[in-house]
Nucleic acid binder design. Structure first.
Length: 447
RNA sequence: GUCCCGUUCGUCUAGUCGGUCCAGGACACCGGAUUUUCAUUCCGGCAACAGGGGUUCGAAUCCCCUACGGGACGCCA
């Protein structure tokens, strides 16, 4: 069934539409994984036969998305290859040649200004690596060249797969019904069809139908824009329709490549779950080496105007050091740590309500502040912890009484990095100033 | 409507030859723990073999039917 030399050659053949859909990305990913697993060749071919909607920018989105996900191609745009060009819009002569072949053997004819393909009338057998044997009868002749001279998808797709020596066609299940057309074409050209593998579709999180570009989370470029980690998105995509068959979910791409195979792919469609993606992103964030986290975080902090060239590098590093383990998305970082860098940070209204209604926040902040002299010059996690526990014991309070009030007084939040680490990093002067501010602002008569 | 594909917790899935599955893991949700909070960490809980017929000593696993879901039926790709 494969090509003569037994080499695995797969392709991703997107149409540049202006966005990189998550379903297409998953198809590209599975092709890439299979090629890498087999030591085969991954071809990127641009199916830009629909002149109305193709453009440079649209191609850019696609290529950037592929690169962002780390899906490198062996042949195609930018890298070239032995079957150039890799744009269907530039392959007209090849299509003309193949069309002539069909005319010569009486399988192509003209009607209404278009060129039609004459079906055989016999049942097509599709031997699918994921679905097994599928039979389908293609009943009606179909157009292969439009009356404006533009060749149609089914035709160019098959011609290019032949011309480029594609051995395995891995694509979405929405193409399964088209496969009978394609098989007819391969046979009409006197070729064995390639091995097919139709992968399940990605459905909307809720409601009927497959993911569409309007659904939240549907576009790869959005994840890049939101600073998701590409490794995390890629890992999640691998899990939609495939699994390593043990209880692992997060695994390095090398391992996925080693384990990936066509028969291991599920048959049924999968619903997209943005929460699980976010969870996996958080896992990746936490497992990252600190230096990697740091270099990803810095541009965001600069953009937000929280740090600049005059910032204290050691301070920035300690802030990021205590924030890394708490984040799910890098996009949260600005809000998560703004109060480390500026004094006019926002106060969370819900947190404020809780603190004020607890009734003891003024007293506990006051006690804390009044006893701080005991610490002397010591301002580290351990000292702060011992100090707070001792203070709680002395005053018959729970340490939580101090922690909640002081966290809010110092950060305006009810959540954040570990409490003692946070206070330690913020520093004594700043902490004292903020606690005094808090007392002034919230003391009786001025709530 | 016709044809094709599918159906395990709310969701993603494990479940190679039918028995060790009164069905395992993860997300989400709920509840605890760390005399220290939280979006981290750790423990625990909830929750599924679509339904009906077969085959078999025995079926989530095989067969049939029904239901439901998805897809394709374009001079879109």
């Amino acid at each position: 069934m494969n090509t003569s030399n037994g080499q695995v050659r797969v392709r991703f053949a997107p149409s540049p539409t202006g966005f990189f859909h998550i379903g297409g990305a998953r198809t590209a990913l599975f092709n890439w994984l299979y090629a890498r697993h087999c030591g085969g060749t991954f071809v990127l071919r641009i199916e830009d036969t629909d002149k109305k909607r193709d453009s440079e920018e649209a191609l850019r989105v696609l290529i950037d998305g592929m690169k962002w996900l780390g899906l490198d191609w062996d042949e195609g745009p930018e890298v070239g290859g032995p079957h150039e060009p890799y744009f269907q819009s530039k392959r007209s002569e090849i299509y003309a040649e193949y069309l002539q072949q069909l005319r010569d053997c009486g399988r192509a004819y003209d009607r209404d200004g278009a060129v039609w393909f004459r079906v055989s009338g016999s049942m097509s057998q599709i031997d699918d690596k994921i679905r097994g044997k599928v039979q389908r009868l293609e009943e009606k002749d179909f157009v292969i060249v439009r009356s404006d001279g533009q060749p149609v998808f089914h035709f160019v797709n098959v011609v290019d797969d032949i011309a480029m020596g594609i051995s395995h066609v891995i694509r979405g299940e929405d193409h399964l019904s088209n496969s009978s057309k394609h098989v007819e074409l391969f046979l009409a050209f006197g070729r064995q069809p390639p091995t097919f593998a139709h992968i399940p579709l990605i459905l909307k999180t809720n409601g009927p139908g497959k993911m569409s570009k309007r659904d939240s989370g549907a576009l790869i470029e959005d994840y890049a824009g939101r600073n998701y980690l590409p490794e995390a998105v890629r890992n999640y995509l691998c899990l939609l329709g495939w699994s390593p068959k043990d209880d692992r979910e997060i695994l390095p791409i090398e391992e996925i490549i080693a384990l990936f195979d066509l028969p291991g792919i599920n048959k049924n469609n999968a619903r997209f779950d943005e929460k699980k993606l976010a969870h996996i992103n958080g896992e990746y964030l936490r497992r990252m080496a600190f230096d990697d986290f740091y270099s990803r975080a810095i541009p965001l902090l600069r953009n937000a105007g929280l740090v600049d060239d005059s910032s204290d590098g050691a301070y920035v590093r300690s802030v990021l050091g205590i924030c890394q383990e708490k984040l799910r998305e890098l996009a949260e970082l600005e809000h998560f740590c703004a109060y480390f860098f500026r004094d006019d940070y926002q106060r969370d209204a819900t947190a404020e309500g809780k603190i004020i209604s607890s009734g003891n926040s003024l007293a506990s902040v006051g006690e804390f502040l009044a006893a701080l002299w005991e610490l002397g010059d010591r301002w580290d996690v351990e000292s702060l912890e011992q100090f707070t526990q001792k203070l709680a014991a002395t005053n018959g309070r729970k340490t939580g009484d101090y922690i909640h009030s002081i966290r809010f007084a110092v950060s305006g939040q009810s959540v954040g990095p570990g409490f003692y680490a946070m206070v330690a990093v913020i520093g004594k002067d700043r902490t004292v100033k903020r606690l005094e501010n808090f007392l002034r602002q919230y003391s009786a008569g001025n709530p």
